[in-house]
Nucleic acid binder design. Structure first.
Lengths: 180, 180
DNA sequence: AGCTTAATATATCAGATTGATATATTATAC
DNA sequence: GTATAATATATCAATCTGATATATTAAGCT
């Protein structure tokens, strides 16, 4: 019970809003959930089939489209399963930053190398932040149109605040490197 | 080349400072690296044996101790391998927060549930932050004793800044939840 | 001394996940 | 007309986690 596969819960969560194909699910994850969760096709497609086998979702072919398109819909059992998982305590929040790992061992490779990693990190964050700020603007406009928007905004605010802090840290880290 | 196993690099990084047993490595990771990297015994022990087979580390039994204790030492090849990895660009920085995932789907379970997850997160961070602040104090004192300390401090400052931001977000998130 | 619990120490494995690769069709741009 | 990008699904080796098993030694208590 405590060990529901995370991928199942993400899929059901996304399907709880709307019917989706595996491909669309992957796209949603790569845009909206990207900064705090990710999944690969190698886990999405098998998990979707598994959801159907367990009666948590149904699958139908899209007859409108000429493509080989499987549309997945959440069932009542699926909705119950999702709600149950949402009510359980969080098992794990994990940050896994290779940048910090390389920095931690920085004395083996020297200041120049460390600086390169900090600046690459800084650039990556600077590029990602505008998307979050844009999402914030949109969500604030449509906040009252859907109860879900408030919860999306909550996660976006998390991203904005932490990314801004990352950029602050980059500036201070560069100073510490140079002056220490 | 671009795909060195991360576990190998962490092990070599830790061994580059001092000789260690698998158990000691796990302890170091659970304390020092914990907030930005983690590894399980199931990856540590096989990887250590693998490092020995590839000539990147040597293994010897501790004859002083009565225990079944294997001490691992980095070789010159191991040091080269580590340096090479440190010079390569970072492949992936990943944040995987189940708390944000559950919050994102919060409209399915309601405000009370969301509040519970935020407060559990807040508590976890409040408990972890003092350890980072303590590490900061210590490292600032011994900063000039070892070139590596500056790099440790860099990662600790990252942790402190982001954790403080997390706590700030928790307060605002609770307000947004209640008032929205 | 004797007993219990915590800490030290290594090993293994099922299950979950990634990242890469393969394959094919349809829409878009030039 | 044709090259390229986007849509769509599937599969698999390699990796890693979390759990479990096993055993020894140190520390605390009475």
């Amino acid at each position: 019970m405590a060990n529901e596969k995370k991928i199942d819960c993400v899929l059901l969560g996304l399907l709880s809003h709307e019917e989706l194909t595996g491909y669309e699910i992957k796209k949603r994850m790569d845009t909206t959930l990207n900064f705090f969760w990710s999944a690969s096709y190698g886990s999405i497609y098998p998990a979707l089939n598994d959801l159907v086998n367990r009666g948590l979702a149904t699958k139908r072919e899209d007859t409108n489209s000429k493509r080989n398109k499987q549309i997945y819909t959440i069932t009542e059992n699926g909705r119950d399963y999702l709600k149950k998982w949402l009510s359980l305590p969080v098992e794990k929040d994990e940050l896994r930053y290779e940048t910090l790992l390389k920095l931690f061992f920085g004395s083996e490779s020297g200041e120049e190398q460390a600086l390169i990693h900090i600046e690459a990190f800084e650039k990556k964050i600077q590029e990602a932040l505008p998307y979050l700020l844009h999402a914030e603007t949109i969500l604030n406009k449509v906040l009252n149109e859907d109860a879900a928007h408030k919860y999306y905004l909550l996660t976006v605010e998390f991203g904005i605040k932490t990314y801004q802090t990352y950029l602050e840290w980059c500036r201070e880290a560069k100073k510490l490197l140079a002056g220490g």
